[in-house]
């Protein structure tokens, strides 16, 4: 699996796809942080842009993993899990490299907005968990792993609680009360699933170590373990095509 992982990284670099991530990591501090002086907004920009890069990189990596030439490598591996794990690790490493460049570029372009080293280091564990969750979630949303129905369901889990308030404003009394109540219930239920991630994101901006943050990280790790288990199960069953 390590050889496959190394080749994925080799291919990603030699095909120059990595320039998108690294270029973005340089451009973001130059364009968004150069005029800032606030360390909190720097940490928020880092978190959001790294998460966005994680989603982008994972979608590209999933597309690469779905190409017949790469699926043919799967025939040389003992299990599908090794294959998907190699691609997940590769996505994580690429995002991490972009994050390092992002931090270095901020140091160069926006030294005033650069947070204290202790603050930055304290925000790192939460950010790493958030990146991994983003990568796993995005992988679950790709055709490589999930069927269209599975992807739609998963998308609803994100989209409904995040956009519900705006959707409600567009639907003035068009639906009967009981249907609206049902939508509210679904939105709340999905919102509960998203809540730990939102809290973890807040933790990357204002990092602190206490019982609450520790519990939050634990809950999030459990959710992440559940997501990885779903990913492994879905991918195991997914029909692939070379011919």
């Amino acid at each position: 699996m390590m050889r496959l992982f190394r080749w994925i990284i080799d291919d990603y670099i030699s095909s120059q796809r990595i320039l998108v991530e690294w270029g973005a990591a340089i451009a973001i501090p130059y364009l968004l942080l150069a005029s800032h002086t606030d360390a909190a907004s720097t940490l928020a920009t880092w978190s959001l842009s790294t998460l966005a890069l994680a989603l982008y990189t994972t979608s590209v990596i999933a597309d690469i993993a779905e190409q017949p030439i790469n699926i043919s490598r799967l025939l040389h591996l003992p299990s599908r899990r090794q294959y998907i794990a190699a691609y997940l690790f590769a996505a994580f490493l690429i995002v991490l490299s972009a994050y390092v460049i992002l931090v270095a570029a901020t140091f160069i372009f926006a030294p005033v907005a650069f947070p204290a080293w202790q603050l930055w280091l304290a925000s790192l564990p939460a950010l790493i968990v958030l990146i991994i969750t983003g990568i796993v979630m995005m992988m679950l949303l790709t055709p490589l792993v999930a069927s269209p129905l599975q992807r739609l369901t998963l998308l609803a889990v994100f989209a409904i609680p995040l956009t519900w308030d705006r959707v409600i404003a567009l639907l003035p009394d068009m639906l009967p009360g009981n249907i609206m109540a049902m939508f509210h219930a679904v939105s709340t239920a999905f919102g509960i699933l998203l809540w730990p991630s939102m809290q973890l994101y807040a933790l990357t901006i204002e990092p602190h170590l206490d019982t609450q943050s520790f519990s939050l990280a634990t809950i999030h790790m459990l959710i992440l373990a559940g997501l990885i288990s779903i990913l492994a199960r879905w991918y195991q069953r997914r029909p692939l095509t070379i011919a």
């Binding site: 291919d11 017949p68 030439i69």
Partner: peptide
């Protein structure tokens, strides 16, 4: 693993690699 080989017109090979390099990479899996 390795007991089945498959060839299809859908397989697009990496343009930047040499024939021997690609074969070596596949074999060392």
């Amino acid at each position: 693993p390795g007991s089945i080989g498959i060839v299809t017109p859908r397989i697009i090979l990496p343009a930047h690699m040499t024939t021997l390099g690609l074969l070596t990479r596949q074999r060392t899996l």
